[in-house]
Computed example of a mutant assay.
Amino acid sequence: MFREMRRKDRAMVEEETKMLLETAQVGILSTVSTDNTPYGVPMNFVYTNEVIYLHCALEGQRLDNIVNNDSICFTVVDAVELMPAAFATKYKSAVIFGKIIVVEDIEEKRKGLIDIVKKYSPDFYEAGLQYIDKAFEKIKVLKIEVSKMTGKARL
């Protein structure tokens, strides 16, 4: 199923890939619908304890898709710098394959949301906790269990 990376000279070691996942701001969650139509959507996320947490509304295309097929691909690109004269681009990227679930456990859901607040709004932690409390029933938390991770960079 997985091909070897063609440009092995650009492969990042696992720790570099994990660091990218900890610092990147946006990732693309890719799912497949029941008619095999691919669907990719940019999302905020947090990588913690070897899993990725995301949040979303209570309904939508991504949720419809994962009910029928929980296999996903999640892609992150960061540190992008165009090099027009060289017809090239500097970048760091990670591609994640795994399974995605809707978090049903209340404590894990809260922890995922708190970790998202810590990443995106660290200076507003207390306000973030209040926001979580007010919006808790209107938010789904998704968890990606990583089965394969690759990182690649051109610096």
Rank of each mutant, 00 (worst) to 15 (best):
M1T: 11
R3C: 03
R3I: 14
M5N: 06
R6C: 09
R6A: 06
R7C: 01
R10K: 15
A11Y: 00
V13P: 01
E16W: 01
K18F: 06
M19C: 11
L21N: 05
L21W: 00
E22K: 15
E22W: 12
A24H: 10
A24W: 03
Q25P: 04
V26Y: 08
S30I: 11
S30M: 13
S30Y: 03
T31Y: 01
T31W: 10
D35F: 01
P38S: 09
G40P: 03
G40L: 03
V41C: 00
P42R: 02
M43V: 10
N44S: 11
V46L: 00
Y47I: 01
T48C: 12
N49S: 14
Y53T: 06
L54R: 08
H55I: 04
C56Y: 12
C56V: 09
L58C: 04
E59V: 08
Q61P: 00
R62V: 06
L63E: 03
L63W: 04
N65W: 01
N65C: 03
D70F: 06
D70H: 12
S71W: 11
S71G: 05
F74I: 03
V76H: 00
D78K: 00
V80K: 02
E81S: 02
L82G: 13
L82A: 15
M83C: 10
A85M: 12
T89W: 01
K92F: 00
V95E: 11
I96K: 06
V102Y: 02
V103F: 01
V103K: 09
V103I: 10
E108C: 05
R110A: 09
K111F: 13
G112P: 00
K119E: 12
F124E: 15
F124L: 13
A127F: 04
G128Y: 03
Q130G: 14
Q130Y: 10
Y131R: 10
K134D: 13
K134F: 09
I139E: 07
K140M: 13
V141D: 01
L142E: 13
I144L: 03
I144T: 04
E145C: 07
V146N: 09
K148Q: 15
G151V: 02
G151W: 06
K152P: 01
K152T: 04
A153N: 11
A153K: 12
R154L: 11
R154K: 15
